[in-house]
Design a protein around this nucleic acid. Structure first.
Length: 676
RNA sequence: UGGUCCAUGGUGUAACUGGCAACACGUCUGAUUUUGGUUCAGAAGAGUCCAGGUUCGAGCCCUGGUGGACCAACCA
């Protein structure tokens, strides 16, 4: 439950303000309006969580409306997938609507517009119309058909509807303002002819309304109070309002459009077009490939609805362009799964371990805690025997001091089993270890309470009994792109940044037998490795697990940091250079807080940057207020560089230097002295 | 050569009518731990893009810059 002290996002502020101004709470209504032309992704989840979240917060209905005004792109498959995803996220829509439900009403309103002289039928080519539209910096010119008699437009529009004309031959346009600074107001298109079957209306219509004409009017029909969309529609708002003005009846609610920034995630792309490209070029295996940022991909990967909803909540909503780090998403899924996932053991990269003093044919049943976070979660059985697999990385002949795992002569615990000590190894001709021989302490059994069982050892390993193990395929995923923001490079295509190693398939992993009964909706933690879930590719007798996300691994991090040298070279290009003077100002401002080496560095970079600044640029800053000492130091330093380069001295300059000499600040004084 | 929007630690967001810049992720310590996980305790990291103004007081208001995003599909 949210309490009143919780901070609001800017949309909630708008709503609170409307409420405070007398807007009745029971008239609040929202909608989520996807076009069924692709699958939903994590960015849509932000919008879904925003709209449905507001619905929950204010007890207001939220419609699911499919914006299906372009039969060339839309398909029933997408409608079904979208509904599945929203329902899976745990939201319930008040009503399922379609823009196509309103085609007749939209048509009637369009006829009304023509009658009032506010719309006309145009018959130019798209090139001609585009040319007349002008540019953002120059006005457009009117269509020669702009003043077509009303009766003629009425007649042509009806015949358009009746299918008398081929696609592209006629259009209905609103008559607004060809000189508007807003391109969307320059006689926008209301209707175009498309001879294609619609997934719901079939061949009933051959003229289809454009987004702008359909969207606001649909909001109005459904009496949506706050129509929330992403920032790129900001420029459409004027048109949204203009269209509403034409049909608005003051006894009804008037919707308002407000815009928020779309959510971007690092190391992936978030546009349907680009995701479709990944699918079509078979870079991924479909929309629900676990590497995709789609809802269905995340679901298959093992993400939970609550993790995604929590992510949306934590990431928040604003109007700023953003790239949210994936680590936040990963945090959300770990936090959820840590509470709920059943702990099991599986070995992905096996090496054989033989316990030489364990009876040859003996098998023991041990018990593994299902979830230490939940004392009531119980235990499950796990068989133990003489020959085991452990992880190859968990053994080193001579591990060194910081290696907490198994090495010759050292003891570790086998999780939920015994303490063992490695004695020797067997190697093949290549020198690869093929078997580790160890002895166990029979008194050290987990949970036995014996003194030996209480003994502290350096580490604990997961393991699996070879003769009881279940074989399975395991798929591990890495980020799909090597660049943090693959589609933000003007000179490069996002596909140039594809990570060639984003999918790693382990054909034969060995899992404890408990997992042979795993079901699709169970979540597991393979202890010490990460979270895993069953993939739909699984067949009876052939299990396939997806790795959702690894556990935090400070050991691996330490290792990569010491072995791998400083990052190869960031693929992120240099930030577009801020102007040198601007940068000097920014560094300068902080100067008074610095000392020692940091101060030296700052001074040096200012002097470096000063080489790119002209005196004329610098002079206005001599007026900087006396209290802004940092900036004045920076300016003084920059001036010094210029004087050295042979800049002529003048009175303004001398006055500025003099004021520096008299300042309280020591750094400023000494900088000024340098110039005398 | 236009219009609109945006600018707060590395990242994402807060900061109500101007009043000690907060939270989360990430990073780094230490403790606990039969997961190098979890948990717990703590630390570092921004003075709010720049300048000027109003004010006792500015992240917030005003003016002027700078930088970024969006806008010219018979797409949504």
């Amino acid at each position: 439950m949210k309490d009143s002290t919780e901070s609001l996002n800017f949309i909630e502020h708008i709503i609170e303000e409307d409420l405070a101004n007398g807007f009745p709470k029971e008239k609040l209504r929202f909608r989520f309006p996807p076009e069924p032309n692709g699958y939903l992704h994590i960015g849509h989840a932000a919008s879904i969580c925003l709209n449905f979240g507001l619905g929950e917060k204010y007890q207001a209905p939220v419609n699911l409306r499919f914006d299906d005004t372009n039969p060339a792109k839309e398909e029933q498959e997408y409608v079904d997938a979208i509904k599945r995803d929203i329902a899976w996220l745990g939201f319930t829509w008040a009503e399922e609507r379609y823009s196509s439900d309103y085609f007749q009403q939209l048509y009637d309103w369009a006829v009304q517009l023509i009658r009032e002289g506010k719309a006309y039928v145009d018959e130019q080519t798209s090139e001609e119309i585009a040319a007349q539209k002008g540019t953002p910096t120059s006005v457009g010119t009117p269509s020669p058909f702009r003043n077509r008699p009303i009766e003629e437009s009425l007649d042509l529009f009806e015949r358009m509807k009746n299918g008398e004309f081929p696609a592209g031959s006629y259009l209905l346009r609103a008559k607004i303002d060809m000189a508007s600074p807003n391109m969307h107001m320059r006689d926008p298109i209301l209707y175009r002819i498309i001879n294609k079957a619609h997934h719901r209306t079939g061949s009933k219509w051959c003229i289809y309304p454009m987004y702008d004409w359909a969207h606001g009017q649909s909001d109005y029909v459904e009496q949506v109070s706050h129509s929330l969309c992403t920032l790129e529609f900001k420029a459409h708002r004027e048109l949204y309002d203009w269209y509403l003005d034409q049909i608005y009846d003051s006894s009804l609610l008037r919707p308002k459009q407000r815009e928020f920034a779309r959510r971007n995630l690092s190391f992936t792309v978030m546009s349907k077009r680009k995701l479709l490209e990944l699918v079509q070029k078979k870079i991924v295996n479909g929309w629900d490939d676990p590497r995709m940022p789609t809802i269905s991909g995340l679901r298959r990967r093992g993400y939970t609805p609550s993790a995604i909803r929590n992510f949306s909540e934590i990431a928040g909503i604003s109007k700023r362009d953003n790239v949210t780090e994936v680590s936040l998403l990963e945090y959300c899924i770990r936090e959820d799964l840590n509470q709920t996932a059943t702990r099991v053991m599986g070995v992905l990269n096996p090496v054989k371990l033989v316990i030489t003093n364990y009876p040859i044919d003996q098998t023991e049943t041990l018990y593994l805690e299902n979830n230490p976070e939940d004392p009531n979660s119980g235990t499950h059985e796990v068989p133990f025997s003489r020959e085991l697999y452990i992880e190859r990385e968990d053994f080193k002949e001579d591990g060194g001091k910081k290696f907490f795992r198994l090495s010759i002569g050292n003891e570790v615990r086998l999780k939920s089993a015994y303490i063992i000590k490695a004695e020797s190894v067997l190697k093949d001709e290549q020198g690869e270890i093929i078997e580790i021989q160890a002895t166990y302490d029979p008194d050290s059994k987990s949970g036995s309470g014996s003194e030996a069982s209480q003994r502290k050892v350096k580490g604990t390993l997961h393991w699996v009994s070879i003769s009881h193990a279940v074989k399975a395929e395991v798929r591990e995923y890495d980020r799909l792109f090597l660049d943090e923001s693959p589609d933000s490079h003007e000179d490069k295509n996002f596909l140039d940044f594809i990570n060639p190693d984003s999918l790693k398939i382990i054909k034969e992993a060995y899992l404890e037998p408990y997992l042979s009964h795993a079901t699709m909706d169970e979540k597991f933690q393979f202890q010490r490795l990460g979270y895993f879930t069953l993939d739909p590719d699984s067949q009876p007798g052939h299990l396939v697990f997806n790795k959702t996300v690894g556990l935090k691994d400070t050991w691996a991090k330490q290792n990569t940091e010491t072995t791998v040298q400083p990052k190869p070279q960031s693929t992120v290009p240099q930030q577009p250079k801020r102007k040198a003077l601007n940068e000097i100002q920014q560094i300068s401002k902080k100067l008074t807080n610095l000392s020692g080496e940091k101060l030296e560095n700052a001074i040096q970079s200012i002097q470096e940057l000063a080489k790119e600044v002209s005196y004329d640029e610098l002079e206005p800053l001599f007026n900087t207020a006396a209290k802004k000492v940092g900036t004045r130091i920076g300016v003084t330093l920059a001036l010094g560089v210029m004087l050295k380069k042979g800049q002529q001295r003048n009175e303004t300059m001398e006055a500025f230097i003099q004021s520096g000499l008299n300042d309280e600040n020591e750094i400023l004084r000494s900088a000024a002295e340098e110039l005398t």
